[in-house]
């Protein structure tokens, strides 16, 4: 408990949303009388996070990820439940609490659009009361790790999305927070920008022992940055543990597709299941994951004359898609 910086217990959040059927008639009706529907955005959420941990918070759209982040940032007040972060209840001591956290919402910007990021940084320096020395030191440090030197003096509106996102992260870290919330930081970024951003985040976590909570739809983000995931669907936590474990559970065993010269002989290899076989091709699945591939291939070459061969492993995206499907979220 002592080293848990974040402690969330039984958090629920309900929203009242107005709804109406399609069509002009209903539009007029709802002008006079609104109908509301209560939805449970979060339903009894609990988890703990340790100092210095990176946690991936995943789930399909509308699962309640952003709502959780907003509650943890002190922006939204939950309907019920308790939450202690670094000794504070976020929504009660909002002003004091937020000094300890940094936030990046990937779909929004905290930088002033018309001026270079450095001006936004200066404003944040005053907003957070950062002493000049500390500010200079931190800025230098962040400029190095996020590679900002060339971009911090260009007006924000002229930065590319990837460049801007690096500045956004710098802006969130200037006041030296203990916890960083990243809400879809890689959304819309190209492959190169994603890679460099992940590297930066990893480096910052390692050098400063920063606790990071990351929501994303990009499983490669998760794979590159963390091993612990919390999976949420329809407002409930469905899984909290390592990504590896889920992968092992849901992954098909290695699959081998092979093409060979015409034969009507049935392939037969120990511990390998033949999914299908025609006269010129076959798909095989290993029964155990830790089977020796070399032995199997040897055996295969003995039995047929191989023309082409490929080995498939399920990607993490496939695993997660399968998982969502199985959990019906």
């Amino acid at each position: 408990m002592e080293d848990n910086i974040i402690h969330v217990k039984n958090i629920s959040k309900q929203f009242k949303i107005s709804k109406r059927e399609a069509g002009m008639k209903n539009a007029i009706k709802s002008f006079f009388k609104r109908e509301y529907k209560i939805i449970n955005a979060l339903d009894d959420i609990s988890f703990d996070i340790k100092q210095g941990e990176i946690v991936g918070y995943i789930g399909p759209n509308g699962a309640g990820k952003s709502t959780t982040i907003k509650i943890m940032c002190g922006i939204l007040v939950p309907t019920s439940g308790e939450c202690q972060i670094d000794g504070y209840v976020p929504w009660k001591d909002r002003k004091k609490y937020v000094k300890n956290i940094g936030v990046v919402f990937g779909q929004r910007s905290q930088l002033w659009w018309d001026v270079p990021p450095i001006d936004s940084f200066e404003l944040l320096k005053d907003i957070y009361d950062i002493p000049s020395e500390e500010y200079e030191k931190k800025l230098k440090e962040l400029s190095e790790s996020l590679d900002l030197d060339e971009i911090k003096n260009i007006p924000t509106r002229q930065l590319s999305l990837g460049q801007r996102m690096r500045c956004e992260i710098a802006a969130a870290l200037l006041h030296n927070p203990k916890i960083l919330f990243l809400d879809e930081p890689t959304i819309g970024l190209d492959a190169v920008s994603k890679l460099s951003l992940r590297k930066c985040i990893k480096r910052i976590n390692e050098t400063t022992n920063l606790t990071i909570i990351l929501t994303t739809h990009d499983m490669q983000d998760i794979e590159a940055l963390t091993n612990r995931i919390i999976l949420i669907g329809k407002g409930k936590i469905l899984y909290d543990g390592s990504l590896e474990q889920i992968k092992n559970k849901y992954k098909d065993k290695m699959r081998i597709n092979v093409k060979f010269k015409y034969t009507d002989k049935k392939i037969k290899i120990k511990d390998v299941k033949i999914l299908e076989q025609t006269e010129e091709s076959a798909s095989l699945v290993l029964k155990h994951k830790d089977e020796n591939m070399a032995d199997i291939l040897n055996e295969l070459t003995n039995q047929v004359e191989i023309v082409d061969l490929s080995i498939e492993e399920m990607s993490t995206d496939d695993v997660i898609a399968k998982l969502y499907k199985e959990l019906k979220i």
Partner: peptide, 13 residues
Amino acid sequence: KGNISYELCRPVN
């Protein structure tokens, strides 16, 4: 548009 999220994450009134 909801950008108020950021405003609420600042230690100001």
